[in-house]
């Protein structure tokens, strides 16, 4: 495993992705220090100004202002904080629930497996967008609610994929050997089965982070996301969509921010998949 991780760190895809994510993460962590303005400060005397280098731009507002005269650059930086928080916590939560259920289903099989399998089926017959909207109605807006909604929708992604992996791993002789040595079921799962599924899990988590960023943007875009007082890229897009002719920049910038973040997570996932998955690494595809 350590060997495989070292191999990943030599992959250009993983390195480029990590570099991009470090920049975004830096903005998210030190938003208060980097942002030139408070993201909520309104200046109604200069609304919808273009970026500073365009005609009519204001040097005080490097990337311009939105329809309430708030600084776009500061909102982008604070938006990165919202996006990264959601990406980290939502994918972690979905991973924990999905992984635990997948290991229980795949390891024990039988009735437990059947029950968890049917639960996943029912869950997945809801289109994810519809389910998350309905959940947001029930939960109300807010950062923690968005995270919870994503966890409740996306645990099935982990559960379904990992279960089949656990099924394969459980059939290996060394798992039977562990049982013969007197390991309890819990010890066997934690020490023997889980490490074998971990490479797949790491890949899934980075892909899930990309999905979480998108879902957060979508929910904020329709006005059911983190709430009006917290800057979010989806909100900025919804605001800019209304004034698209006056200020096309305001639409472009948050779209770029989402695009770059999502591409970085996907690139990371793809790079990890190629280097961590032993079977893929061997065929060289």
């Amino acid at each position: 495993m350590a060997d495989a991780l070292a191999r990943s760190l030599r992959s250009p895809r993983v390195l480029i992705a990590l570099g991009m994510l470090l920049c975004i993460g830096f903005c998210a962590v030190f938003a208060g220090l980097i942002a030139p303005h408070d993201p909520g400060d309104q200046n109604l005397l200069s609304i919808l100004t273009p970026p500073a280098w365009v005609d009519g731009g204001d040097r005080n507002y490097l990337l311009g202002t939105d329809s309430l005269g708030r600084d776009v650059l500061s909102r982008l930086i604070y938006g990165a904080r919202t996006a990264m928080l959601v990406a980290l916590f939502a994918s972690f939560g979905a991973m924990v629930i999905g992984t635990v259920l997948a290991h229980i289903a795949g390891y024990f099989g039988g009735a437990v497996d059947w029950l968890i399998g049917r639960a996943v089926d029912v869950w997945m017959s809801f289109p994810p967008v519809i389910l998350s909207l309905i959940l947001m109605v029930g939960l109300g807006t807010g950062l923690s609610k968005v995270i919870l909604a994503i966890v409740l929708v996306d645990w099935t992604r982990f559960c379904r994929v990992l279960r089949s992996e656990v099924l394969i791993v459980t059939r290996h002789d060394y798992v039977a050997a562990a049982r013969l040595l007197g390991f309890t079921h819990r010890q066997t799962i934690v020490r023997e089965v889980f490490p074998a599924t971990a490479p797949l899990l790491i890949t899934l988590v980075s892909l899930e982070m990309a999905i979480a960023v998108i879902v957060e943007a979508i929910l904020s875009f329709v006005g059911l996301g983190v709430g009006a007082d917290q800057p979010a890229w989806g909100q900025m897009i919804a605001d800019a969509r209304q004034y698209v002719y006056q200020s096309p920049w305001n639409l472009l910038l948050p779209i770029l921010a989402i695009f770059i973040t999502v591409t970085a997570f996907n690139l990371l996932g793809d790079g990890l998949r190629r280097t961590l998955d032993v079977r893929l690494a061997e065929t060289g595809r």
Partner: peptide, 23 residues
């Protein structure tokens, strides 16, 4: 194809709107 794969319909909708509608 991998970059294309990572752009969901939400982003495509906004990108196309920006390029062909506004620009």
């Amino acid at each position: 194809s991998i970059v294309l794969l990572s752009i969901p319909e939400f982003l495509w909708g906004l990108i196309l709107l920006f390029v062909f509608g506004v620009l």
